[in-house]
């Protein structure tokens, strides 16, 4: 039975949730506006660290800590955007990936009294957990603990609210400008729109959504560590977005759930197949301790096939992809 329950558990876990938000932020950046942000991890990290340090080191209330996290993401967006958004898209890509790495290295090596290097920040969940309305379930639900259940409830409600917000924004004239910028900035400029300002707004919005992912991930794991925010974080989020289909409201959430479910299923299944005295997969082909890597290879293969046969993702619109003037 754990072939079903484990993937289900993983796909809705707080860890997966942090990626849902990261991917939703990237959907604003890349999907709708065409901004290549390769440093989404930095936004999640900024949110998580601002919240964690504000509570653990300064004893600030949860609400204030969360607000500081949002402010952190906004500041980060300004730092990345001010020098690069006037330039071509490639520059933003370079700067974002650099800023994300710098931030991660600062968290893991500097200000150890606050960031505690690789151990990370912990001891900030009390305020959040005290709000938990769930009773103590003996077996839990999908073997989630009481604390996890509280985090994922809040998290998935926030996912729905964010989806609604994105949907409302993207059907508005504001969203129309973002989609136009994605296609041709100069055309938008020639019609009197301040492209720079709109790109900045998009960067900030997607960054703040990424920071929410940092909050949820941090509260779920009860600690914030620098290594969770390496470049893999951003690229896995990108993968989920493309799997779901860029520029669709629901696609980051569905993409993330599907990604974790498949990854987790492969982990469980391959472990079962390669374990025991007489494994189905011979041990000279694959040993159980290689499962962790093999499943990523299989996911990679699936993604390649997806890009070849369904480049628009699950929800993407073939019509929008097929018509290309140039």
């Amino acid at each position: 039975m754990d072939l079903i329950s484990t993937p289900l558990h993983d796909a809705f876990s707080p860890y997966a949730l942090s990626f849902v938000f990261a991917a939703m932020g990237l959907n604003i950046h890349y999907g709708y506006t065409g901004l290549l942000n390769f440093g989404q991890a930095a936004f999640s990290a900024a949110g998580a660290y601002a919240m964690g340090v504000a509570i653990a080191s300064f004893d600030l209330p949860l609400v204030v800590a969360l607000l500081l996290g949002v402010v952190g993401a906004v500041l980060l967006a300004l730092v990345m955007g001010v020098p690069t958004l006037r330039l071509r898209a490639d520059y933003l890509a370079i700067v974002t990936i650099a800023v994300a790495e710098i931030l991660r290295l600062v968290f893991s090596t500097s200000f150890k009294d606050y960031f505690h290097a690789r151990d990370g920040v912990s001891g900030f969940t009390l305020g959040f957990r005290s709000l938990n309305p769930f009773p103590d379930l003996p077996n839990g639900f999908l073997s989630f603990s009481r604390n996890d259940l509280w985090v994922i409830t809040v998290g998935w409600i926030l996912v729905v609210l964010t989806c609604v917000l994105v949907w409302l924004l993207m059907r508005s004239p504001w969203g129309r400008i973002l989609k136009s910028i994605r296609e041709d900035e100069d055309a938008v400029r020639s019609l009197g729109k301040n492209v720079y300002s709109y790109k900045m707004q998009a960067l900030i919005l997607g960054g703040v959504i990424g920071a929410i992912g940092g909050f949820i991930g941090g509260l779920g794991l009860a600690s914030v560590q620098p290594d969770s925010f390496n470049t893999d974080f951003t690229f896995i989020a990108f993968t989920m977005l493309i799997l779901g289909g860029a520029a669709r409201v629901m696609s980051p959430a569905v993409g993330a759930v599907l990604f974790w479910a498949v990854l987790s299923f492969l982990g469980v299944a391959l472990t079962k197949l390669s374990n025991g005295d007489n494994p189905i997969i011979p041990s000279d082909l694959m040993s159980p301790d290689q499962v962790g890597n093999i499943r990523f290879a299989v996911v990679g293969l699936v993604l390649m096939l997806l890009m070849i046969f369904r480049p628009q993702g699950i929800f993407g619109d073939k019509k929008e992809i097929a018509i290309d003037a140039r």
């Binding site: 004239p173 129309r176 400008i177 136009s180 055309a187 003037a325």
Partner: peptide, 30 residues
């Protein structure tokens, strides 16, 4: 420089300047 993935009418609407719905805080409220 037509925006090929927008409809013809949306291309036209984009041209109007100073739209209220183009401001972030007003955009979600139709």
């Amino acid at each position: 420089k037509v925006l090929s993935k927008l409809t013809v009418l949306e291309n036209m609407r984009l041209g109007a300047t100073g739209q209220r719905g183009e401001r972030f805080w007003a955009a979600p409220f139709r």
